[in-house]
Each structure stands twice: as structure tokens, then as C-alpha cells.
């Protein structure tokens, strides 16, 4: 589904990604872990098309197409979704209106009929019910005055409504208490299907108790240091990141 080859990228002239290769197949969940400043958030944002990053080498192929050649909205319409680490506040636009604008932009691009406001309310209520939330936040402006946990849940709601093929979760677990973490994880698990994939970027192992990954990669200083199965995450939990960094220094 996603093929990243020797990807290099800079921000403001500073190299952040120094040759990343990663292959994600449909049905898989990959976890990317690593210390702060390792480049893991950069990778997630770059894949969604964030304009701050300049690709200086390598390639990214998504469903057979050159992902790097697409605008952010084209990527979204092709099924890429980024759950933001820091969701943005949009004043004056209600959550319900925003969600409908987004889903209709994607439906229009795919040649599907757009939802009218009434039809969309049905869709929205179904999604809310599926992830066990009420509509209390739907008529409030997007992320305006939301708590940290509400913002993260709102990202997951957008994901549920937009039904992406490739989900990128950028530290969705940070700042969540254990109950909120569980609800977010359950929502993500419910969206796991044979034809979708997810890349979960996280600093902590904790989330991976609930979203069990097929592959775990450790990113540090812009490179993947080590890849493994779920047991790698547990080892990182027990030993931290330093042993990996020093292993690399010795090698």
C-alpha cells in the first residue's frame, strides 16, 4: 500500500529525515517509536503533505502513485488521513459543518453524491454511536475551547467519518488519561480492515497495549534504527531508548 524508499527531508534547511525506508501492506498496523526530536512526527506530517517540509531525496509510492507529487487535499481524497498531534482551532465553523465540508469534498472528488445537511446528520449520528460519543461537541466551533482529550477524540471522529485507507496517528495518545486512551484505541481498532492500514507514531508503549501493531520501528536522528514485532515495543518500554542509541554508536 505504502512504499517509502530512502526518504530524505529538510525543514528550514536542516535535515530531519536522513534516508527512511518503510513498507506498509494493506491490513497492517505499524508503530513508529522514538525519542523526542527523532523525526517521527515529521514523517507523519510529511506523508500528509505538510508544506513546511522539503523532500530532498527518495520516493513515496502510495497505491501505485507518487504520493509526494500530490497536494494535501489530493492525498486526503485518495484516502490518506493524519490525526494531528496539535489539532487546529477553526473559529466560527461548527464541527458538524466542518465534517460535512470535508466528507463532501472527498465524495465530490470521487464522483460520489454529496450529502445534504439532513442526510449527513444521520451519517454523523451513526458514527458517533459507533464510537460511543454523543453530539455535545458537534455544534461547537472546531476544537475551540476543547480540552486536550476532546481534541484528540475529535481527530478520531474525523477519521471515522472520512473512512481513510491509510491512517497516520501522530502522537494521538499524548496527554490522554487511560480511559480516553482506551476509547481512542477502540475507535482505531474498529476501523481496522483488511484493505486499510495505519501508522501509529508514539513516544510511549502504552498505546500499543490497546492498538496491537504488526511491526514496530524505532526512529532516531532521522533514521530507522531497528525494526521488529510487538516485542520490540515491550523491550523499549523496559529498557528505554538509550541502549539502542549506544548500540548504534558502538557499531
Amino acid at each position: 500500500m505504502l512504499e517509502i524508499k530512502d526518504l530524505r527531508a529538510t525543514v528550514e534547511g536542516k535535515e530531519i529525515l536522513k534516508g527512511i525506508s518503510l513498507s506498509v501492506k494493506a491490513g497492517e498496523v505499524h508503530a513508529i517509536m522514538g525519542p523526542n526530536g527523532s523525526g517521527k512526527s515529521t514523517l507523519a506530517q510529511l506523508l500528509a503533505g505538510h508544506p513546511a517540509y522539503t523532500v530532498t531525496g527518495g520516493s513515496v509510492t502510495y497505491l501505485g502513485k507518487d504520493l509526494l507529487d500530490m497536494d494535501p487535499e489530493e492525498r486526503a481524497r485518495e484516502g490518506v488521513f493524519l490525526a494531528f498531534q496539535y489539532p487546529v482551532t477553526i473559529r466560527g465553523v461548527t464541527n458538524a459543518y466542518f465534517l460535512r465540508s470535508a466528507v463532501n469534498a472527498i465524495r465530490k472528488a470521487r464522483g460520489q453524491e454529496e450529502y445534504d445537511p439532513i442526510d449527513f446528520l444521520d451519517v454523523l449520528h451513526e458514527k458517533l454511536k459507533a464510537i460511543g460519543w454523543d453530539d455535545a461537541l458537534m455544534n461547537r466551533p472546531v476544537n475551540d475551547g476543547f480540552s486536550g482529550g476532546e481534541k484528540k477524540r475529535n481527530e478520531i471522529l474525523q477519521m471515522a467519518v472520512l473512512e481513510p485507507k491509510l491512517s497516520l496517528l501522530d502522537e494521538t495518545d499524548s496527554g490522554l488519561d487511560i480511559d480516553a486512551l482506551k476509547t481512542v484505541a477502540e475507535a482505531v481498532n474498529r476501523l481496522r480492515k483488511p484493505d486499510t492500514a495505519a501508522i501509529v507514531v508514539t513516544h510511549y508503549q502504552r498505546l500499543l497495549n490497546y492498538i496491537v501493531p504488526d511491526h514496530v520501528h524505532v526512529l532516531a536522528e532521522g533514521r530507522i534504527l531497528k525494526s521488529g514485532g510487538r516485542e520490540l515495543a515491550l523491550e523499549l518500554e523496559a529498557r528505554g531508548y538509550d541502549w539502542l542509541l549506544s548500540e548504534r554508536a558502538v557499531a
Binding site: P72, V93, A105, I106
Partner: peptide, 20 residues
Amino acid sequence: FYLRSRGLDALEARNLLTYG
């Protein structure tokens, strides 16, 4: 970027932000 990452093109995103 937030709006474009949700599928709105640049003009739609700008209009929605202006309206908001």
C-alpha cells in the same frame, strides 16, 4: 493545512476560514 488535509482544496479552505 488542517483543512486541506481533510480534502478541501486551497480555495475552499480559504473561503471556509474567512466565513468562520
